[in-house]
Amino acid sequence: MSDKKKSLTVFKSDRHEDVAAIFASALIVVVVLVYMAFIVPSVGIKASQDGKLVEIFVTEGTDVKKGDKLYSLEVVKKKWVNNVMEEKVAVESFTAKANGKVLKISGKPGDALKKGKQTIVVLEHEKGTLP
């Protein structure tokens, strides 16, 4: 089949394409993990959902351990209960995902935050941990 090679570009068959996709995804995962664990010195932690900043539990220079509370957010929680969408306002605390040190506090209580937009806390994490 003269055009067989051309038909699947760099891959000889779908089997090769499947294996290449497995390698590509593994490579992406490794790059992201190495980047976050060893290359990025600090991360700006942003709100994971829209809400109002209620309290910041840490101060600049504080050492934090994985699981320590960083800040709390007043959010509207939406949940289906008995096939009805229930909305209630709740205050949720968010914790550190890795050991590290607080470099900067950017938010202040009362700030209205948009998901993934404003930085609340800048955290320097220990090398080799995933913030």
């Binding site: 089949m1 055009d3 067989k4 051309k6 038909s7 699947l8 000889k12 068959s13 779908d14 089997r15 394409e17 499947d18």
Partner: peptide, 27 residues
Amino acid sequence: DATWDVFTGHDWLSGCNSRIGFLEYMQ
């Protein structure tokens, strides 16, 4: 006609030897 690969180019779910087997069959 060697355009069956383009005609089925949107099919990304075929795995293993499905697609190449199909293209060989069409050939």
